[in-house]
């Protein structure tokens, strides 16, 4: 279990990996906005092109990207079907009994598939594949820091996130140990009905919870011994710095968004 990796981070040295994580979060938000601005064939084509460019510059293997898309295939199919059958339009293609399919419906379905795919690919290229979970946590903590004015415990959430990330491998390892111990005593996790298999998990969950609480207690003591007292007065070893390439990336995405708006106005083909 030593090989467990968290999240989808794929180590590489691409430009996307080297961007400031805070800027990547901002870029991802802007990119999501851009995907929702698209209205016609031209803008969706530009959107699709941008996703392909992102994949290429991120140096993430295509196999990994396609694997990520496979996971949402069902949602995509479902959305497409709904759009095909329930969009009312003016150019009917099929009219049979209660089934009415319009050309607009087909366009709508196509646009939705492109939008969802690009949404997933774009955000994972910008964030999850190219940023470690811990950097992402740091970035969110700093970006959301102004919310502290509203008494939202931003630092505490980030700390919880960090500790969760730290302990997931430890707890997975422990689960395996407990499972082996229960198997050695004759527990059976793999046969029987769904309900009996679920019941077989109880002897694993109870010791796991007991140990997790004990760990939490000991960790809290250890943190207190290291003078932890929340975010106030705390400094950080690594301070994030924006570099020129971060602002270049920001400029690129703004131009890209402007491009989408311009293409929307050209009014070619079906418009959403």
């Amino acid at each position: 279990m030593k090989s467990i990796t968290l999240g989808q981070f794929y180590p590489s040295d691409s430009i996307l990996h080297r961007l400031d994580p805070r800027m990547k979060v901002i870029l991802a938000v802007l990119y999501i906005v851009a995907t929702f601005l698209c209205k016609n064939v031209l803008s969706f084509a530009l959107l699709l092109l941008s996703a392909i460019v992102l994949i290429l510059i991120s140096k993430i293997p295509m196999k990994l990207v396609l694997g990520g898309i496979k996971a949402i295939l069902f949602i995509m199919a479902f959305t497409a079907l709904i759009n095909v059958f329930f969009t009312k339009g003016e150019t009917p293609i099929v009219e049979w009994r209660f089934i009415h399919i319009y050309a607009e419906g087909l366009w709508q379905a196509l646009f939705m598939i492109v939008r969802i795919t690009v949404l997933i690919v774009g955000t994972s290229m910008l964030l999850t594949y190219t940023t470690t979970p811990i950097m992402l946590t740091d970035a969110l903590e700093q970006l959301l820091a102004p919310l502290r004015v509203l008494h939202i415990p931003v630092h505490e959430f980030a700390m919880m996130m960090t500790i969760a990330l730290r302990f997931i491998p430890t707890l997975v390892e422990e689960t395996n140990k407990i499972m082996s111990a229960q198997k050695a005593r004759g527990a059976d996790f793999t046969s029987g009905s769904l309900i009996s298999r679920a019941k077989a998990l109880i002897p694993i969950l109870i010791p796991l919870f007991v140990s997790a609480f004990r760990r939490a207690d000991e960790l809290a003591t250890a943190m207190e011994c290291r003078c932890y007292h929340g975010g106030a007065g705390r400094t950080r070893m690594t301070i994030l710095h924006y570099s020129p390439k971060d602002f270049v990336a920001l400029a690129v995405i703004v131009v890209f968004g402007a491009g989408i708006i311009v293409l929307n106005r050209l009014g070619i083909g079906y418009t959403m």
Binding site: R166, E218, R234, T238
Partner: peptide, 24 residues
């Protein structure tokens, strides 16, 4: 296991001084 806080060794070592407010 139950006294290491961070997911990277050096970040964990930095945890105490960070709490004390030592400059970066």
């Amino acid at each position: 296991d139950n006294q290491l806080v961070a997911t990277v060794v050096e970040e964990d070592v930095a945890f105490g001084p960070e709490n004390l407010g030592v400059p970066s």
